[in-house]
Design a protein around this nucleic acid. Structure first.
Length: 84
DNA sequence: GTTGAGCGTT
């Protein structure tokens, strides 16, 4: 099952909470993580969101991919490394 | 105090 989404193009200001909150309206977000630098801990501008079901994940991809978040266009797609 | 394609961390 592919429930994890790759989210790119995020503004620098976005954090885990903002990411989860943005996807929460499409289904149950199991986890939302913004990848940040190991040393400076600044946002790398992309992250991962895991939904409770693949249907919700697919819905979020269909509705949010190519749209804007906080004024910046974001990329939403099924992530690699499937959760199976 | 910056940057802008891609696929992390336990």
């Amino acid at each position: 099952m592919s429930k994890r989404l790759f989210v790119g193009g995020l503004p620098w200001a976005v954090d885990d909470h903002a990411l989860q909150d943005h996807f929460a309206g499409f289904g149950e977000v199991v986890s939302a993580t913004v990848i940040r630098d190991r040393e400076t801990q600044r946002s790398r501008g992309f992250g991962f969101v895991e939904f409770a079901s693949d249907a919700e994940a697919a819905k979020a991809v269909d509705d949010l991919d190519g749209t804007e978040m906080e004024g910046r266009q974001i990329t939403v797609s099924i992530a690699k490394s499937p959760g199976v």
